[in-house]
Write a protein that binds this DNA or RNA. Structure first.
Lengths: 128, 128
DNA sequence: CTAGCTGTACTATATCACATAATACACCTG
DNA sequence: CAGGTGTATTATGTGATATAGTACAGCTAG
């Protein structure tokens, strides 16, 4: 069985939506380290997407060290590890900057953004 | 002359990079409301991109109300207006959530993210 | 008025990402 | 051995991206 939630929307690649749904499920502890992750064929069948698309999502998640493969058996959720400097910089510089620029252009106040982050930090996973 | 800065990187569509560079220049007041914006052919020639790609960027900026067209003359930077509810929701829900999820998966602390936002809020435009 | 700028709109071509389909193979487990 | 696992391959179709070249209507400065 699939143990994470997802609701597809157009305009975003399917495999990216799967990756994000899994990330969010892990971060919200809906999926915990050591939990079994459904097989490629299982994901493909339950989400009704192509096996290759499911495989693409899984391989990305492995490369990002969110999943570990047990050959011949299946895959499990990894522990959340520390970030590399490059990863930290990408978030704390590039991604934050994008959010700031978009907020400013829409005349959204800094306090509103910070509030939204405080609110979002204690996440309850409603949809994916 | 081009009055905003940009440094292209691969993996992101050129027209999107142009859009972001202009947004950032406006938000950092490197470009101010009423300033003349270079013509499509000017942008195309100076950035050495195809006129159609430049046109694509400009038309998106017009649709997002960051530029106004003066037919036969050129275009100018618009005033920053208030956001619609949908635009606010997209930033304060979706975009913030993405940032939170990515931060948590890399074990980045909330305080670090908030600090980065405080720092980024007073932007000096180094590159685009 | 004319020349030269402006935005805009076509047609055409090439490349790449995305998604799908259908097989195939090596690995491990029960 | 049978059946599950991840993984790789070939093929097809669609759409976005970027390029090139051409064209036209509108406005302005000379």
């Amino acid at each position: 069985m699939i143990n994470f939630t997802i609701k597809f929307q157009s305009g975003v690649p399917i495999y990216e939506q799967v990756i994000y749904a899994v990330k969010k499920a892990i971060v919200t502890e809906q999926l915990k380290a050591g939990d079994r992750f459904p097989s490629v064929r299982e994901v493909s069948k339950e989400l009704r997407i192509n096996p290759n698309t499911a495989q693409k999502a899984v391989s990305h998640l492995v490369r990002e060290r969110l999943l570990e493969i047990k050959p011949g058996i299946g895959s499990i959720i990894s522990e959340l590890g520390a970030a590399t400097k490059a990863q930290r910089d990408k978030i704390l510089n590039d991604e934050v900057e994008k959010l700031v620029v978009e907020s400013k252009r829409l005349s959204i106040k800094k306090e509103e953004v910070v509030d939204a982050i405080n609110r979002g930090w204690k996440l309850d996973n409603k949809e994916g």
